[in-house]
Design a protein around this nucleic acid. Sequence first.
DNA 1: TAGAGTCGATACAGACCTGTATGGCTTGTC
DNA 2: GACAAGCCATACAGGTCTGTATCGACTCTA
Lengths: 197, 197
Amino acid sequence: MRARILQTARDLFYREGLRAIGVDRIVAESGVAKTSLYRWFPSKDDLIAAFLVEEERERWESWDRNAARFSAASPLEELRGIFIGLERQIASSTFRGCPFLNAVTELPDPAHPARAVCERATMELRTRLLELVTSIGVRNPQQVSDQLTLLVEGAFASGQLIGKQGPVTQLRVMAELLVRSQMNVVPLARQDSLETA
Amino acid sequence: MRARILQTARDLFYREGLRAIGVDRIVAESGVAKTSLYRWFPSKDDLIAAFLVEEERERWESWDRNAARFSAASPLEELRGIFIGLERQIASSTFRGCPFLNAVTELPDPAHPARAVCERATMELRTRLLELVTSIGVRNPQQVSDQLTLLVEGAFASGQLIGKQGPVTQLRVMAELLVRSQMNVVPLARQDSLETA
DNA sequence: TAGAGTCGATACAGACCTGTATGGCTTGTC
DNA sequence: GACAAGCCATACAGGTCTGTATCGACTCTA
C-alpha cells in the first residue's frame, strides 16, 4: 500500500513537479483512499521527502550497477561505466532533470524536510567521485572530484534544458580529459586523441 | 508602473519560485492595484514570460560588461572576464540558480509561453560561447563551446545545490584547460600549472 | 467644463489546495 | 460470532489561487 502510493507519487512528482501535483491527483491515480495516504504519510511534505529518499536509493542502485559492469578491469573503466550510465539516463525520453536540484528549486525554504535529502544526495555524489578518483590515482583527488561533480550536474541541467543532442555529448570526453590531465602514468592526452578513442 | 510591477515580480519570482508567489503577493509588495497589474499583463503566465525576458536582458548586459572589462587584451582574456563575472554572480548571497533552468523545472508544460524565452536564452549562451572560442581559435569550436556551455550550466546548478565553496571553484580552471587543450599556439598545459596561474 | 484614460481599494466568483471527519465495507483473528 | 484494524468513498473545513467586477479619485486634454 505504502509502496503503491510512493510509486505513483514518484512518477507524478518527477514528471510534473512537486507543487503542480496535489494529493488528490496522487490519490486518484494510485487508486487508494485519501485516508490511506495520510495514514502512511502524515503530510504532503513527508511524502515529498519520502519520494526523494526513493529517488536517492534508485540513483545509487543504478550507479552501482553501472560501476560493476566495468569495475573488473580498473577504476578508470569503472568511472567510464558510470558516465556511460549517466549519459543513457539523460538521453532517456522520460528524463526531466535531477530530482534533487528540481526539489531545491521548487522548495526555497531551507528548513523543508526534503532539503536534507537533497543535500545528502549531492554530498554522496561528491564523496563517491572522490573515492573513485582517489583509487584511480590522480594527483589532486579533491580537485578532480569537484570537477567531475560539476560536470555531472551540468549534464543533468543541460539535458533538461537543451536535450541529449546538446552539450551533454561532451560529458564523457571532458571527464576523461580532466582525469588524464592529472595522471602520471599515461602521457597527457590531447583532446583530439580522446575524441577518436 | 509596468516597470515597478516587473521589478517586484522579478525579486519575488527569483527568490521564492514562480508557483510559490501569487499575484496578490506581487500586488501587495509593489504597492499597485491588482487591476493595474492585469492591465499590463493579461495573465500571470504573461508576467512570468516578461520576468524571464527581463532576466535575459540583464544576463547579456552583465555578460557584455564582463567581456568588455578584458576584451582589449585578447579573446582569451575576454573569456576569462566572462567566467570571473559568472563566478562572482554565483557567489552572491542572493544567487538561487539559473532563472531559466528554474522556470523549466517549475513549468513542465512545453507549450507555456515562458518556455520559448528559456530556450532562446540557452541557445544564445551557446551561440555566444561559440563565437568566442571561434575567435580564440580552437581546433573544434563547436565542441569546445558545447563543453563550456555544460560547465556554465553545471556551475549554476552546483552553486544552488552545494554553494560557492563547492565544485564551482573549479569552473575557471576547467574552462582554461579545455580551451588550451585545443589551442596550437601555446604548449598544452598541465592542470598543475593552471592552478598556480 | 466635459470626457477619456489610468489609478487604488475592495469585494467577489469559481476553482484548487491540504488535511480531517464520518460511515460503511472487507479481512483476519480469537 | 465478536472485535479490531485497515480500506474506500464522500463530504467538508479553511485557506489560497487566478482573474473579474465595481466604484470613486485623479490627471490630462479638448
